[in-house]
Design a binder for these strands. Structure first.
Lengths: 142, 142
DNA sequence: TTGCAAGCGGTACCCAGGTACGGGCTTAGC
DNA sequence: GCTAAGCCCGTACCTGGGTACCGCTTGCAA
């Protein structure tokens, strides 16, 4: 019964989840982590499930969701709403990622052409026509 | 002979190149744009070639080069050095882009699996095993 | 009981690539 | 000569995802 509390201190949670302790406070401010309980002295005391929440956050980040999107996803999950669950947002994110891949593929093609054409000096290429580099203004496209 | 100067004022150059006038000063600070001449009153006066330089910068950015890399590329071009021309850096950038595409493709595959598996709630998935989402810690891989 | 690590809140800083603001000058046209 | 627009410089702000520093308080064990 040594007067210590149940749960994890911020340092322990940070350690367990592999993040910086400061990041916990940051996530709390951003609404990703619910306000934890406190000891009498005001130190944070997290329930063990917090480790899972952090792992979920990191997994979602790896899938390309921003912290705002993750906060939203968690909020939806907490309130059992069905308005736009993970599946739908995952589909939207898939489209986004497909677009990013397409953009990168276009850039890759251009770079390949530049290498193939033997471009070796940007300014030179810009002057002497017939260089594959896209000097004309960007097509906004969005 | 109305007493006005030859060349472009910053507003004209910005307009011609499709950038914000503030961006010109920013590029100057970053070493991408050489210090232009000045009028007697201290206003910048750019040679017409500056438009080309700006187009080159924008083209290189579109190809995924950072401003520091572009500054380097232009510096190399100006001094006629052969130490690591555009071609070599373009090849390095190609590899970088290939890696980014591969990362995105992996994320895409995971998202597809999650959608296919019918995941609709992050926290639920994290608890009930057999969800394809990568909750285990990231493989650093770099 | 006392010593010291760990945690507290608030604020500032980091990266890139810009953009905005404000007070005061210059320039161009009439 | 006058006026309006344009430009000067310095500085602060923005996004996104954190990280660091500070002086002070708590927790806990020897």
């Amino acid at each position: 019964m040594s007067g210590h509390y149940e749960g994890l201190r911020s340092g322990q949670l940070a350690e367990a989840a592999g993040v910086n302790p400061q990041t916990l406070r940051y996530y709390e401010r951003r609404g990703l982590l619910a306000d934890p309980g406190r000891t009498l002295g005001g130190h944070r005391l997290y329930p063990p499930e917090a480790v899972t929440v952090l792992r979920v956050i990191k997994a979602a980040q790896r899938l390309g969701f921003t912290l705002d999107e993750v906060a939203d996803l968690l909020e939806t999950a907490r309130h059992q709403r069905r308005d736009a669950g993970l599946a739908e947002r995952a589909r939207a994110k898939l489209d986004e990622i497909d677009r990013r891949i397409a953009d990168l593929a276009a850039v890759r093609a251009t770079l390949r052409e530049a290498v193939a054409a033997g471009c070796d000096d940007l300014m030179e290429c810009a002057r002497h026509e017939r260089c594959p580099l896209p000097f004309e203004d960007a097509t906004p496209r969005s």
